[in-house]
Design a protein around this nucleic acid. Sequence first.
DNA 1: GATATATGCTTGAGTAATCAAGTATTAGTG
DNA 2: CACTAATACTTGATTACTCAAGCATATATC
Lengths: 142, 142
Amino acid sequence: MQDIHPTVRFVIDLARIQAILNRRFDSGLGGLGLSEFIILLHLNEAGAAGMRRIDLAESVGLTASGVTRLLSPMEKIGLVKREANRDDARSSLVMIAPGGKRKLEEGMERAELLAEEIVPSEKKGEMKYVASVFSEIGRNIR
Amino acid sequence: MQDIHPTVRFVIDLARIQAILNRRFDSGLGGLGLSEFIILLHLNEAGAAGMRRIDLAESVGLTASGVTRLLSPMEKIGLVKREANRDDARSSLVMIAPGGKRKLEEGMERAELLAEEIVPSEKKGEMKYVASVFSEIGRNIR
DNA sequence: GATATATGCTTGAGTAATCAAGTATTAGTG
DNA sequence: CACTAATACTTGATTACTCAAGCATATATC
């Protein structure tokens, strides 16, 4: 038990950092939760075509159920809108609404400020490396 | 909104990976939640001296309140034990109990298997490096 | 040495997710 | 073409936290 497997250590450090960042971002994004912010970001990247809820779940890292619960109030307040999927009646498409675009821009400004607080700009190189490791892990885990 | 700030992207990737890992570890550690596992790990490292709950909270990344709620059932089933702190009556010390040591060893075995699934062992060097970046970020954010 | 303030911890109430089970719909198979 | 299996959700119940408030105890200040 002396030496901890590096990847296990990684998971532990990851959990800690995420818990802290989650709290910070949840309360610092101007009334937008971190998950909501992330959803808007993905939907914004998807553009007018929108996304199926399940693909959104996959890219955010939540379950389909979690996405359903998150989207429902967001739809009510006009951050996102839904549309039937003419190719598959099981699924509907979600897309970002004008209100969501505004909120996203607001949130992004704050997110950038928060980001600067946690990683000093001279660490950008390291961040790049970490990002590449993340994307590899991301592919491994689904 | 075209290019996303690298650290903001980092936070988003982190959130996704953590959500997925959290689910995997929560259900793969043999009845031990990931947070409980992490707590046992820290307490094990602290040894017989134990830790104050607030220091435990800080190293796990949760709030004091969260730690209270996690520890209470763990104490009941004999994974940890508590002891008054003779230097400061406000705080009590928590330490790992024999039952906790056993559970931790079991959990560690499974955690290592899960870890191998996520990151192939030839990437251990990279993980060590990422861990060092994490611990630096960790110091920045408290 | 009294009083204000800070620290450590717990608790009630709330929230954000989970899982398991259910309902449609679609795709695959003999 | 019927029938089984898989997919895309949604919902009820539960879990794992959070925050705000409160209670003790400790520390600092006058």
